[in-house]
């Protein structure tokens, strides 16, 4: 080994990463297994089985799955339309720029935008009532609900998907499609046997990222609903602020639960990818 003192060059990075990423996370993980006296315990984790906490995890996971799945689907459709769907080529640049903007347009302003659009006096709500006589709130729609939040999250999920998947779609070579076609494959067979398997790692990665993205999102939901919708990040937010729960170690356990959920999502991605990529270098 002639690395010698070379590691000194990356020392600042590792110090930073340890102090502001690794140690804080470790602190939470360890805290989840300790009681206030610093002794080992599983009581905090057991506290997660309280019905309202289980419910909050359930609804969070459902929202994240739904917004990730729909985000992947719609984002993929839009990216595919632009890359290979035969629409004019000039559409691509504005779509990519817009996706860059919209994928970062999360948080508080996004909530405002959807309140102004689909809230009780929002533009679309009003227009639907005036023009078509459809009262979506009377029909059971509520922005502060599972579907309302999912619909809102899609505003940054779809563009994120477009940004991730467009380069992968562009990596599909024309010769693969032509070779499949000339060998007698239909368009469906080409997608099922060639294109989708090649895209599979990218699709999985995008799904895992989109899932984590919406699972950890606090600002949009908080600005939209206050603390009325009990998804996990909102509960944890309230807990850290000391508004609701008084047991700090339950907070540790909830944060640990969040890490476990996003960890599982990403672990699943890594495992499935390594299996899908056996044909890669």
């Amino acid at each position: 080994m002639r690395t010698g003192w070379n590691w000194l060059g990356v020392l600042p990075f590792f110090v930073f990463a340890v102090l502001f990423l690794v140690l804080p996370t470790m602190n939470i993980v360890i805290g989840a297994f300790r009681n206030p006296q610093g002794e080992f315990t599983l009581a905090n984790l057991a506290g997660l089985s309280a019905p309202r906490i289980v419910d909050s995890f359930a609804i969070s996971i459902r929202i994240s799955l739904a917004s990730a799945a729909l985000g992947c689907l719609v984002g993929f459709a839009m990216a595919a339309a632009v890359v290979m769907g035969g629409v004019p080529a000039w559409l691509k640049a504005p779509l990519m720029t817009f996706s860059g903007v919209a994928s970062n347009f999360a948080g508080v302003p996004l909530a405002f935008a959807f309140i102004a659009t689909l809230g009780r006096v929002g533009l679309v709500t009003m227009l639907l009532r005036q023009w078509f006589g459809i009262n979506i709130y009377a029909m059971g729609f509520n922005l502060l609900s599972f579907w309302g939040l999912t619909l809102t999250y899609l505003f940054f999920q779809i563009p994120l998907m477009i940004l991730i998947i467009t380069p992968a779609l562009e990596g599909l070579r024309r010769e693969w499609r032509e070779a499949a076609e000339v060998l007698g494959a239909s368009t469906g067979q080409y997608w099922r046997m060639v294109a989708l398997p090649i895209l599979f790692p990218s699709l999985l990665g995008a799904f895992a990222l989109l899932f984590a993205n919406s699972f950890g999102a606090v600002a949009t939901a908080y600005a939209l609903t206050g603390s009325s919708l009990s998804i996990v990040p909102i509960m944890l937010f309230a807990q850290i602020r000391g508004d609701v729960l008084q047991d700090p170690h339950l907070g540790y356990a909830m944060a640990f639960g969040m890490i476990v959920v996003t960890g599982i999502a990403n672990l699943a991605y890594v495992i499935m990818r390594s299996r899908a990529e056996r044909w890669m270098r």
């Binding site: 990463a17 990423l21 140690l23 996370t25 950890g216 606090v218 944060a255 969040m258 890490i259 996003t262």
Partner: peptide
């Protein structure tokens, strides 16, 4: 791997760690 961690660990967990640490 380290640089991708912030995409996986929710910001609220990281800041919770800061407050405790």
């Amino acid at each position: 791997f380290i640089t991708l961690l912030p995409l996986v660990i929710p910001a609220i967990v990281v800041v919770f760690g800061y407050i405790r640490l």
